[in-house]
Amino acid sequence: MFWKKQLPLIIVFMMGLIMTVQYFIPHHVSKWVYVNYVDWAIVIAIFGAFLGYFSFLRVHITRIRKKTSNWVFSIITLASLLIMIVFALIDGKGSDSLFQNMFLYTSAAINATVFSLLAFYISSASYRAFRAHSAQAVALLLAAVIMMLGRVPIGDKISFWSAWGIPSINTVSQWILNSPNMAAKRAIALGVGLGSLLMTLKIILGIERTYLGN
């Protein structure tokens, strides 16, 4: 039981203490600890990645075997994976190899296109935001509109009131960015900072044990 429950928590506490103390010690011994921690963390992550690949393959193979819904697409997924590995083996990974081209013109292109869907989604999100149903939502909306206009030259052009000394949309948007937006960011950052502090403390002390599983 000690090996399963207590020892991991002791390791957590020891490592937490060591790394916290390491921050304050400039001696080269401490630097050595830090450099090795980084190397060790990378090696553990390398093995951890294997876990992911294995479970990915398992999920799709199971789907094909049991012929659950959309199992055909699992075949396509595995086939694409296999093709990439074969390409890497026959043509290497250099620039302009089959491997790179396959990645650039399929996956990277699809990812960029999915990313670009944001342009449409942001329009529908803006439309939904425009149907503001509370005063605070109106504030959000107004700030967003001023920001949008203030970032492009057209904001200045339609600010006819700037001739009378009233600041133009661009100036107001700059102020929003540097003042209330900054305040909001800081309030959230301070809160999140405290939350992170408490959470790391709970992990080191063993109060927070979710990541260890049951």
Binding site: K4, L7, P8, L9, I11, V12, F13, M14, M15, G16, L17, I18, M19, T20, Q22, Y23, F24, Y37, W40, A41, I44, F47, G48, G193, S196, L197, M199, T200, L201, I203, I204, Y211, L212, G213
Partner: peptide
């Protein structure tokens, strides 16, 4: 759990003073 303990413990210790 040992690997997770090492990673999480060291990661939390690393982050604590920096977060402050």
């Amino acid at each position: 759990r040992y690997a997770l303990a090492f990673t999480m413990g060291a990661g939390s210790g690393f982050a604590l003073p920096r977060v402050i």
